[in-house]
Amino acid sequence: MSEFYALLFTVAFWVLIIGLGLKIYQYIKTPAPLKIPLTPAPLTKTGVGFRLAKEAIFFASLFKSNKWIWLFGWLFHMSLFIVLIIHLRYFLETVPEWLVMLQSVGKYAAFTMVIGLVGLLVRRIAVPRIRYISDPSDYLWLILLIVIGITGITMRFFSHTDIISVKAFAIGLESFNWQQLPLDGPLLIHLALVAILMILLPFSKLLHIPGIFFAPTRNQVDNPREQRHVSKWALNLEAEKNKKQP
C-alpha cells in the first residue's frame, strides 16, 4: 500500500508539473495580436502588477460582482492557501519558527475552507442560473475538495494519525527513498484525493490558476498609441508587408 501511494504521488507530482508547465508554455507561446486591456487600465507595467495582485489576492472583480460568491470563494481560497503552507511542515526537515506559529491559528483554516466550499456548493445547487451552467465535474470538484478538507480535519482533531511517519513518508518521496505510510482510513482517502486533484488539475478548469495571470484583458498595459504592438503572425500578413509608405 505504501508503495502504491509513493508511486501515485511521484506520478501525480510529475503530471502536475509537466502538465501545468506545458499549459503555461502554450499560453506564453500563443500570441496576443491586439491590445485588449479592459479599460480603465494601468498605464505602466507596475500598475499591471498591482492590478493582477488585486485580482489574485483579493478577487477584486468578483467582489464588485457578487458578495456571496466572493465571500465563499475568497474564504475557500485563502484558507486553502494557509492550509497548504502549514503542510510544508511535512516536507521540511526542520520546521521554521514562523511555521510553528502560523500553525497554532492556521489549523482552523481547514474549517473555514470547508465552510467556503459548502457555501459554493449550496449556491451551485440552489441558484438556477448557476445550476444551469454547472456540469457534473463542477460539483465533483467541490465535493472532492470538501472530502479532502473533512478527512484532514478528522485527522487533526479527532482520530490522530502518526504524523511522524507521514513526515518520513513525505520526505522520503523527495529523495525517492520510499517509507512506510500509516494505514489509516482518513489518511488514505485524504492522500488519494489529493493525488487525483494533482493529476487532473492540468486537464481541468483548475487551469484558472495560471489562467488568471494570462488574461490579456487584465495583464496588458494601456499604451497602444504610444507603443506599436504587433504579433509575429500579423507581421507576415500581406497587408502589413505591402502597406503604403509616405
Binding site: 457578487n66 451551485r124 442560473r129 448557476i130 451552467i133 478548469k205 494570462f214 488574461a215 490579456p216 484583458t217
Partner: peptide, 14 residues
Amino acid sequence: RSLQVFMDSCIKCG
C-alpha cells in the same frame, strides 16, 4: 491567447 486562455479558465462561478 485570449481565446485559448478564456476557453480554459472559466470556473463557472456564475
